[in-house]
Design a protein around this nucleic acid. Structure first.
Length: 479
RNA sequence: GGCCGGUUCGUCUAGGGGUUAGGACGCAAGGUUUUCAUCCUUGAAACAGGGGUUCGAUUCCCCUACCAGCUACCA
């Protein structure tokens, strides 16, 4: 059996679109599953769309995602160069071969002439005008410096069928096909030509790409046939959508891998989520490490219809990963959000409390409101039906709580909680109400990442006492 | 417009001639919990429509509708 070789062939035009990342992932998984090789090729033949640094973004994304390539511009390999702009002479050579066997031809038509070819319904199809130029005419036009492109000469009759591992066999009438430009007037190849030449020369066995290429695949098959090359297996992938009507697009600022990282999502979670968008593992597992994905990946699990990206579900998946992070790792990711909180706060404990309660680290600032945003809270928070707490009870019991807590030297959870229970028993204030009162008095917030004693430990004795006294003042001056 | 492809709960999906059409996220309700979250239980929620074929179609075939892609010297 021949070696499995897949490739990821992005254009360096900016950030890494999440759909592209998924294409890379599937190509990677398939190669690794079959002990094959995963190749990175940079498709920079459109000189007008090149963006500085975009190649660095590609390397960086692949690295963060853990998709390491076996061959590529930076790591080398025996089928290089792996950057298309460095392969110009190769495309020229193969274009010449095609011209020699009449499967391609020079075209000198101007843009203006091309526009006259537009038919009633607004379509344009090249009329093979230049196909009929004699070799002498071609020579003299080239010598005269007239700009030209090289076009594919597709048959006008018959049909072309290609086979796709996801979509099955697809047949089209050759007369529907266009004489695509293979080499542009600037001398660079189009994708339509370069991908065929490179995939063949780089021995790519399985071509993974977005399904927008389905329509042009018959042209590619014709090219392979013209060269007498073996046709690779095709794996066209459905799109990832923002909603039913719209593809995930850069315009919304939420379609790039980088955007999700900035929102605090973990690379592993993003990859895991995206893997399951359009592919199912034939079991009910939702959480997969990269190596588990490799093990489970099957092309037969790829779906034909496009999938809507659901950030809510990503959040859930991310929370699963967050919970499993080593405490130290979570803490160092969280610590950047602690910049302006009181130094009296025990941030290690804070991280512990937070880790089980956030979906992404960027949820942290909101939760921190009880620390940074304490004073002037609404004292009606003390009125709480479920726990039978009222402002009155709060005002009456707080002095005793403050007195008892004042005596404590070992500021620990058990000791504090024991004290609460004792105060509750002595005063007759129900435990639930008492705990509610302490927590509100300490935080001024309805919802906090922990209970009454945890909040105390978190803040330390000094700050806790300060806040309890403040709250008592508030209650006393409330009338 | 033409060509190509797609359509199962709100979303991701399983299933496939006879099923109470399964799971996950989310949502709702209840329970546990020192608030919140976690966790547990339960619930609501889907085969786009119409024709065939068949004893029987969500499943196979055809048509329609809708959605998306292509129709570039972009990929």
């Amino acid at each position: 059996m021949t070696e499995i070789r897949t490739r990821f062939a992005p254009s360096p035009t900016g950030f890494m679109h999440i759909g592209n990342l998924r294409t890379a992932l599937y190509a990677y998984l398939f190669a690794k599953k079959h002990n094959g090789r995963f190749i990175l090729r940079i498709e920079d033949t459109d000189q007008e769309r090149l963006v500085d640094n975009a190649v660095a973004v590609i390397y960086n994304t692949l690295k963060l995602a853990g998709l390491s390539h076996d061959e590529g511009p930076d790591v080398g390999g025996e089928y290089g160069p792996y950057i298309q702009s460095e392969r110009k002479s190769i495309y020229d050579e193969y274009a010449k071969k095609l011209i020699a066997c009449k499967h391609a031809y020079h075209c000198f038509c101007t843009k203006e002439r091309l526009e006259t070819l537009t038919d009633d319904s607004g379509n344009r199809k090249y009329d093979k005008h230049c196909l009929h130029l004699s070799p002498e005419e071609v020579e003299s036009k080239i010598a005269a410096g007239i700009p030209y492109v090289i076009r594919q000469n597709v048959p006008e009759t018959g049909t072309t069928t290609f086979s796709d591992l996801v979509f099955g066999d697809i047949t089209v009438e050759n007369r529907e096909l266009h004489d695509n430009v293979l080499i542009k007037s600037d001398g660079f190849p189009t994708y339509n030509f370069a991908n065929v030449v490179d995939d063949h020369l780089m021995r790519i066995s399985h071509v993974f790409r977005g399904m927008e290429y389905i329509s042009s695949t018959p042209n590619y098959n014709l090219l392979y046939e013209s060269f007498g090359w073996e046709i690779p297996q095709y794996v066209h992938l459905p799109h990832i959508m923002k909603d039913k009507q719209h593809k995930l697009s850069k315009r919304h600022g939420d379609a790039n891998f980088e955007d999700f990282l900035e929102k605090g999502f973990l690379p592993e979670a993003i990859l895991n989520y995206v893997a399951l968008l359009g592919w199912n593992p034939k079991n009910e597992v939702e959480k997969f490490s990269l190596s588990e994905l490799i093990e489970s990946f099957e092309i037969s699990g790829i779906s034909k219809s496009s999938a809507v990206f659901d950030e809510v579900k990503l959040r859930w998946l991310n929370s699963q990963y967050v919970k499993e992070l080593p405490a130290q790792e979570f803490h160092s990711a969280a610590v950047k959000y602690y910049a302006d909180i009181s130094p009296e706060i025990n941030t290690v404990l804070l991280s512990q409390l937070l880790q089980t309660r956030v979906s992404t680290v960027s949820d942290i600032p909101d939760i921190l409101g009880f620390i940074n945003n304490f004073e002037n809270y609404d004292v009606s928070l003390f009125d709480h039906k479920d726990s039978k707490s009222t402002k009155e009870t709060a005002k009456n019991i707080l002095p005793e709580i403050i007195a008892e807590l004042g005596k404590i030297d070992t500021w620990e959870n058990d000791v504090l909680f024991g004290t609460y229970i004792r105060v509750s028993e002595q005063s007759g204030v129900k435990k639930k109400a008492l705990l509610w009162i302490i927590r509100i008095a300490l935080t001024g917030h309805l919802s906090t990442p922990g209970g009454a004693s945890e909040m105390c430990v978190l803040m330390g004795k000094n700050l806790s006492m300060k806040r309890l006294n403040y709250s008592l003042d508030r209650l006393e001056s409330d009338e």
